[in-house]
């Protein structure tokens, strides 16, 4: 199993550099960058900067296929693959529905749109002249000007079971997030999809990205509760119903979030929710918890954010513990 590290596109330059300097490149395998749709940062530019400042793989995890059109994603990813000389990985997904809606972006037919996007991206990267018409796209003898020698791995960052099955059918990898007890069900769905097309789960790189926090003191978990409240507010109830988290409790939390803000919602995050949504403890606890996911065929686990009280020190400690274990 590989250990990755995760940041988001809104991370400031100095913090990103500090994290990249803390990374032991013999321990970590990939830097994943999540796209903050509500912050004014370009995830592709952040990925480019990261590729030029580390020797690790760098992945976008994820960008919404509804936020940018397919040719733009294709050429941005191809550019990044060239910047990183083949170290770039592209994560695509539907994206946060609330954010997309607030930006006036329509989300229609997510399953067929994801399949269509993955297929077209590969055709474009292969240098084909592509003609294709659908409700979202109209490509007429479209091609990229320059050929790309690297086939970029496509990861699906999706949660619904049907989308996970699709990931099993067509993706190179899948980025899973959500309650821990849901993850097993999610991997099963990926496996089902893979088997439908005579692939195996081993053909798909399964990545798990949950918030992770190195902490020895309970009081530091307060910031983790805020993160969990925020994530629970955006997690579909169908996903929560596959976990140990009680859906009714989440509905109450959402109401609190709407009426009293994040602090009010964070106060309703109980230990069950915390345990389901976040990895925490000392460095050894965290590494053992992450490694335990190997039994459900997880290939890579992402450490961070919030990392810990002292980010750089936490990253170093987790890397040391990972090496020991």
């Amino acid at each position: 199993m590989m250990l990755d590290i995760g940041v988001t596109s809104s991370i400031q330059r100095d913090r990103l550099i500090s994290i990249l300097r803390s990374i032991d490149e013999n321990v970590f395998h990939c830097v994943w960058i999540g796209e903050d749709l509500d912050k004014p940062y370009d995830v592709f530019v952040k990925a480019s900067f990261t590729l030029m400042n580390t020797y690790l793989n760098v992945g976008i995890g994820i960008t919404s296929i509804f936020f940018r059109d397919t040719p733009t994603i294709a050429r941005a990813a191809a550019s990044l693959s060239e910047v990183g000389r083949g170290r770039f990985r592209l994560g695509i997904g539907v994206g946060g529905l609330q954010h997309l809606r607030s930006m006036g972006v329509k989300v229609e037919k997510p399953i067929s749109s994801m399949r269509e996007t993955a297929t077209l991206l590969r055709r474009i990267w292969r240098g084909e002249i592509v003609s294709h018409r659908s409700s979202r796209l109209n490509l007429r003898r479209y091609s990229l000007c320059c050929p790309y020698s690297h086939m970029i791995p496509i990861f699906f960052g999706v949660r619904g079971l049907r989308l996970l099955e699709l990931a099993g059918e067509v993706s190179d990898g899948v980025i899973l997030s959500g309650p821990k007890t849901y993850l097993e069900e999610a991997v099963c769905a990926v496996r089902r999809g893979a088997e439908k097309v005579n692939r195996s789960i081993e053909d798909i790189c399964v990545v798990v990205w949950l918030p992770t926090m190195l902490t020895l003191e309970r009081k530091h978990l307060e910031s983790a509760r805020r993160i969990v409240a925020f994530i629970l507010a955006d997690t579909p109830l169908s996903i929560l119903s596959l976990s140990r988290i009680r859906v009714d409790d989440v509905l109450i939390l959402r109401r609190a979030l709407a009426e009293g803000g994040l602090d009010a919602a964070a106060r309703l995050v109980d230990d069950e929710m915390l345990n389901e949504m976040i990895f925490y403890g000392d460095a050894g606890d965290i590494c053992n918890s992450l490694l335990s996911l190997e039994r459900i065929h997880v290939d890579e686990v992402v450490y961070g954010p919030p990392f810990g009280v002292d980010e750089a020190e936490s990253i170093i400690k987790v890397a040391e513990a990972w090496k020991r274990i």
């Binding site: 370009d42 592709f44 530019v45 990925a47 480019s48 900067f49 030029m52 040719p71 733009t72 050429r75 941005a76 191809a78 550019s79 990044l80 060239e82 910047v83 479209y142 091609s143 990229l144 000007c145 320059c146």
Partner: peptide, 16 residues
């Protein structure tokens, strides 16, 4: 342009 590399990424490589 739609068929060229993505200019913000190229700009970052130049700026680096």
């Amino acid at each position: 342009s739609p068929s060229l590399r993505y200019s913000p990424v190229i700009a970052s490589a130049v700026a680096e």
